[in-house]
Amino acid sequence: MKLSKIFFFFMLILLLVTGCKSGDNASDAQIKPVESFYNTIVSQQRDQIGTIACASWEKDAYREVDAFMGVKSEMKDFSCTVQNSTADAAEVVCKGKIAASYGNEITDFPIENRIHKVVKENGEWRLCGF
C-alpha cells in the first residue's frame, strides 16, 4: 500500500514535470522566431528572414530589417514571453529595446508595446507581424 502510494506520487510528479517541460518547449518554439527577428536586425543578416517570417509578412519583415541597415544596433535588456497561445498561433511580448547608433547619435527603439503575432506554418513557428 505504502509502495503504491509512493509510486503514485512519483508518477504524478513525473507527469507534472514533463507537462511543464512540454509547455516550456512550446513557448520556446513560439518565442524563437521573435528573438531571431531582432537578432537579424542587429546582425544585418537579412537573408535569415526567409526562415523567420511567415509568407504573408515576409516582404514587411525584409523592410523592417533593411530599415536598420544604415545604422549599428544592439539589443538591450531583451527578453520575450508568450502572452496567449493556441495550437497554431501565439502572441509574444518582449522587454527591452533596440539601441541604434549612427555616428555619435544613439536612438532607442522600445519594443515593449508590440504584440508579436506568431503562427504555425508548415509545422514551423513563424513571426507574422506585430
Partner: peptide, 18 residues
C-alpha cells in the same frame, strides 16, 4: 528625415518619432 535613414526606414514602424 533622420540620420541613418534608408528608403526602408521611412516605411518602418520602428523609426517613427514616438
Amino acid at each position: 528625415a533622420k540620420p541613418g535613414f534608408s528608403a526602408a526606414s521611412v516605411l518602418s514602424s520602428y523609426w517613427i518619432d514616438y
